[in-house]
Amino acid sequence: MTLDFTIVPSYFTLLLIGSGWTIAITAAAAVLSFVVGILFAVIALYGPALVRYPIRLFAWLFMGTPLLLQLFLIYFGLIQIGIDLPAFAAGVIGLGLHFAVYNSDIIQSGIRAVDKGQYEGARTLGLSRLQTIARIIVPQAVRSVIPPIGNNMIALLKDSALVSVIGVTELTLTAQLAISKTFHPFEFYLAAAVCYYVINLGLEAGLRHLEGRVQLSR
């Protein structure tokens, strides 16, 4: 079998659709990882022991094990206890939770770095503990940790390829679809790599723009 890149253009639309799904999965998982990351961070720092320790245990487990293993647990494991998630949902949840744990770690350090005076300033106005955390502490912490969280989102984009292993339709799986018809793996995986690279460039540019906009100084 020789290399023949002329067959790639006829699958252009397919790869484009795959790219669209990859972007959608990355975006959905990014939002999930961000929201859950904040939640985990707040619980880990302020929550009652009854929830704090289970969350820490969960974080410890998810940081110490491979993402692929976690995806297998969520997709093949949950169905055995009666939770039948569609592959797409399993993929987004798996990616989202995995990166939530890493985001939570970063956000926690961001929260610790917020000046104590901010807490006192809000409390003396009469804001409750929860209002202060939600409106004053977390918004500042999140702004200060956007660069490292952005790095996590870049990692998330690339790791989204893993959900093809549990059968989620995205860029890697559409490349495999083309391969199953043409038997030209080299060309199509390379084409997929190019697509990932371009999406990655876009994401990096977007993150740089965001960092510039929310820069915060006292």
């Binding site: 390829a161 890697t172 793996p185 995986y189 997929a192 990932y196 990655n200």
Partner: peptide
Amino acid sequence: GTPALIQLFI
């Protein structure tokens, strides 16, 4: 800039 999985597959 590209997924390790894709590199492995190539």
